[in-house]
Write a protein that binds this DNA or RNA. Structure first.
Lengths: 125, 125
DNA sequence: TCTCGATATGCACCGTCATACATAACGAAG
DNA sequence: CTTCGTTATGTATGACGGTGCATATCGAGA
């Protein structure tokens, strides 16, 4: 379905990055963490999730670590060992954040498309 | 007036980055270029504008260059020499982009605040 | 014609951040 | 108790982007 975005002016398309930060903390919760949680939910594995997103396991793991610390919330639950080596699943809170951010993003994205169309209708690049 | 943002859940606040890209070009028009144009409009000087934004003149100049090339539009008009060394002003197109992006951003920001409040009302970090 | 401050532009350095690499720990199944 | 794949974590290498610095150009006014 092409991540495209309608072009109003010329070959011009709008992009948006949306994230949340806690009080003084520098670690954000944004699209990256969101995609990561989604991939974990799908695959049941942090390693698989990282691979799916084309990001290193090292980074994915560190990101989650920092985010959980920043939010003060446990997002994932991991198990090690066993035939399959282990797995990673979302906690109830993890799924809550996944859903909330998804909704948040969807709403804003719709608004971005509307605002873009309205604002750049006549601006020819 | 503090870039703050209402906190709905805890010390949580939403942030957004908005930008536009042309067809295949990697050079975006976003908040940075927008602030730069605004500062130029206020000060009448690229050097002063860069200083005001706390960014190096080198970068400010390069950014404008790339953006004008990417958009295929002349945004500024510069003069060199004279008692004051010269100055930089916005072209009619420059001002048009300044205004358009400002409106675009304002609309989206309002929507972000609304969506954030609605989505993260009950999510305690 | 000399001066002064801003525009114009190349280049070397440096901080940041992700990747790559190297291990270690774990534990069910065989 | 050995194997195997995953989680867990430190360290180093490398790409990228901004800063700093150097230098050139310009032109009205003194």
């Amino acid at each position: 379905m092409k991540r495209g975005a309608r072009t109003a002016g010329g070959g011009l398309s709008p992009h948006v990055r949306l994230w949340l930060v806690t009080a003084g903390d520098a670690t954000p919760f944004g699209q990256g963490r969101w995609l990561l949680l989604a991939a974990i939910d799908r695959t049941g594995s942090l390693r698989a999730a990282a691979a799916e997103l084309g990001v290193s396991y090292r980074k994915a793991w560190g990101d989650l670590r920092k985010t959980e610390k920043a939010l003060g919330v446990q997002l994932i639950e991991t198990r090690r060992g066993g035939r399959d080596g282990g797995d990673t699943r979302l906690t109830a809170n993890g799924r809550r954040w996944l859903v909330a951010y998804g909704r948040f993003r969807a709403r804003v994205e719709r608004s971005v498309m509307r605002a873009f169309a309205a604002t750049f209708k006549d601006l020819q690049p």
